[in-house]
Amino acid sequence: MPPERRPLGSGPGISLFTLGTMRATGSPEQMLEVLEAALDAGINHVETAPSYGPAEACLGQALDRIATSRPGDRAELVLTSKILPGASLESGQAQLFGSLQRLGVHRLDNLAVHGLNRPEHLAWALEGEGARLLEWALAQGLVGQLGFSSHGSTPLIEQALASGRFSFCSLHLHLFDQERVPLAQRALAGGIGVLAISPADKGGRLYDPPPELIADCAPLEPLRLAYRYLLAKGISSLTLGAERRQDLELAGQLKSAAGPLDNQELHALRHLEASGQSRLGAERCGQCRACLPCPSGVPIPELLRLRNLALGHGMETFASERYNLIGRAGHWWEALDASACHSCGACLPRCPHGLEIPALLADTHRRLAAAPRRRLWG
Score class of each variant (00 low, 15 high):
R132G: 01
R186E: 12
A57C: 04
G60Q: 00
R289H: 07
A310H: 01
R367S: 08
G286P: 01
P12F: 14
H342R: 10
R373D: 04
S163D: 15
T154Q: 14
P12K: 12
L96I: 08
L146Y: 07
I197P: 00
G86I: 06
L360D: 04
G164F: 10
A346Q: 12
L188N: 06
L355G: 04
A184D: 02
A319H: 10
G330V: 12
I326H: 05
L306I: 14
L195R: 01
A24D: 03
C288P: 05
V46P: 00
L368K: 02
S153C: 08
E316Y: 15
E273M: 08
C285R: 00
A338D: 04
L266F: 02
Y323N: 09
L254S: 06
V194E: 03
D40A: 15
S167V: 03
D73Y: 08
G9S: 07
L223Q: 08
E158H: 10
G378C: 12
S88M: 05
E316C: 09
W377G: 09
L309Y: 06
A226N: 07
E179C: 00
V143M: 11
A49F: 12
T68C: 13
Y52F: 14
Q95W: 04
V105K: 01
A41G: 05
A268K: 00
A38H: 02
L96A: 02
R350L: 14
L171E: 05
L188A: 03
E4T: 08
S339Q: 15
G60I: 00
E249Y: 09
P71I: 09
H45R: 06
R118K: 12
C217M: 07
L133V: 10
R74A: 14
Q95E: 11
A67T: 04
A184N: 06
R322M: 15
C291W: 11
T317W: 13
A200D: 05
R366A: 14
A112N: 12
L142D: 03
R366V: 10
T21F: 00
L63C: 12
A369Q: 08
L175H: 01
Q140I: 05
V34P: 03
R228D: 05
A160C: 11
G11C: 11
Q159R: 13
P349Y: 13
Q246W: 03
E212I: 13
G330F: 13
L195D: 01
P7L: 14
P260T: 10
P301K: 10
E129K: 07
A87I: 03
L280A: 01
Q101T: 11
Q61Y: 02
L206K: 07
I214G: 00
Q30F: 12
L240T: 06
L79Y: 02
P260L: 15
R205T: 11
R322H: 15
E321H: 13
P12T: 12
R165C: 13
A184F: 04
E221C: 09
A62N: 05
V194R: 02
L261F: 14
A196Y: 01
P211A: 14
W333A: 10
S339G: 13
L16P: 00
S69V: 07
S15K: 00
P372H: 14
N324Y: 04
L306G: 11
F97P: 00
G115S: 09
E127T: 10
E90T: 14
N110L: 15
C341L: 15
E212A: 15
L16G: 01
R284H: 13
G276W: 01
L63N: 07
L133S: 05
